[in-house]
Design a protein around this nucleic acid. Structure first.
Lengths: 141, 141
DNA sequence: CTTGACCTTCCCATAATGGGAATCCCCATC
DNA sequence: GATGGGGATTCCCATTATGGGAAGGTCAAG
C-alpha cells in the first residue's frame, strides 16, 4: 500500500502519517525502490489505533506509551488503566475550566439588555469596575 | 510606567504586552527618549481588560472586537451580547467534546481489571477489534 | 566606572495539523 | 518514445498564545 491508500484505510492523513514517523511515534516505514513508503495491513492497524487514541484526546507522547503497552505481551492492564484515568482527569479538568468560563459569561450575558443601548454588564465586568474606558463623566453609570 | 511595572499592575506579562502590540491588539506604546515603552493608568486598564477577557477564553481577535466595542461610546449592547453568546456556544461545545471523551474513556477504564494481567478493554477498543496487535494466532480472542 | 536591574529586538520552541512548491515515480495512452 | 496526470517525496510556512534566551542598550546606586 502506498501512503495515500494507507491514509484512506486508516483515516489518518498522509501528511500526518509522515509526521508521526518524523517525530518517532511510528518506526520508519518500509520503502520501495522508488522511495515510496510501503504499508501493510498491520501498519494500517497501528494507524487506526493512533487515530482512535487521538479521537479520545490523547497527546502523541501519551499515544507512544499506549502503543508500547499495546505491543507488550507482558503488560499489566493496571498500567494502561493508570494512563487512561490520568488522561480522564486532565480531560475533565479542562472541561470544567471551559464550563466555568461559559457559565460566567452566560451569567453576564443574561444581565445584558442586548438592545441598542450601550450599557453592558459584560464590558463592565471585563473593565473591572463599572466604568466605560475613558470615564470622562464621573457618574457611576 | 515602564513595561515591567505595567505588567505587574495588569497581570499581563511584559512579553505578552509587547506581543499584543506587535499583532495590533494594542496601539504602539508611547516611548521615552531611551526607547523604553511608557504606560499610564489607562493603558494598564486596557491590559487588565485583555487579561480578564483571556481568562474567559476569548481569542485575541475576539478581544480586538470587544476592545473596539468598549471604546465605542455609541455601541449597542446587543453586539456585545452577540459576541459573548457566540463565544459561550463555542466554549460549551468544546466542553461537551472533552466531557464525551472523558466519559467514553472512563467507561472503558471501568471495565479494565487494572491488575497484573495483560487483558485490557481500553487497548482492545483502541485496536478496533479484540486483537492484540500481532494477532499471530488467529483465534478471535 | 562598575554593577545590577531593567529594557530593547530577534530567534526559537511549544502541539497537531494543514497548505503549497519543486521535483520525482509510475502507468497509460498517443 | 514522448507525454500527461495522479500520486509520492522533501522542505518551508502558518496556525495560537505563551515563554525562554541571547546580545546589547539604559539607568540608578554605589
Amino acid at each position: 500500500m502506498r501512503i495515500g491508500e494507507a491514509a484512506e484505510a486508516s483515516g489518518v492523513s498522509a501528511k500526518m502519517i509522515r509526521h508521526y514517523e518524523a517525530v518517532g511515534l511510528l518506526p520508519a516505514a518500509a520503502r520501495r525502490e522508488s522511495g515510496y513508503r510501503d504499508y501493510g495491513d498491520a501498519d494500517v492497524h497501528v494507524l487506526r489505533f493512533i487515530r482512535r487514541a487521538r479521537d479520545l484526546g490523547f497527546s502523541l507522547p501519551e499515544i507512544g506509551g499506549l502503543l508500547a503497552l499495546w505491543g507488550d505481551r507482558h503488560r499489566a492492564s493496571a498500567e494502561v488503566k493508570r494512563l487512561a484515568l490520568a488522561h480522564v482527569e486532565a480531560l475533565e479538568a479542562k472541561a470544567r475550566d471551559l464550563s466555568a468560563m461559559a457559565a460566567t459569561l452566560r451569567h453576564l450575558a443574561a444581565h445584558c439588555h442586548g438592545d441598542g443601548r450601550p450599557d453592558c454588564p459584560i464590558l463592565e465586568e471585563l473593565a473591572g469596575e463599572s466604568c466605560t474606558r475613558e470615564a470622562t463623566s464621573s457618574h457611576p453609570g
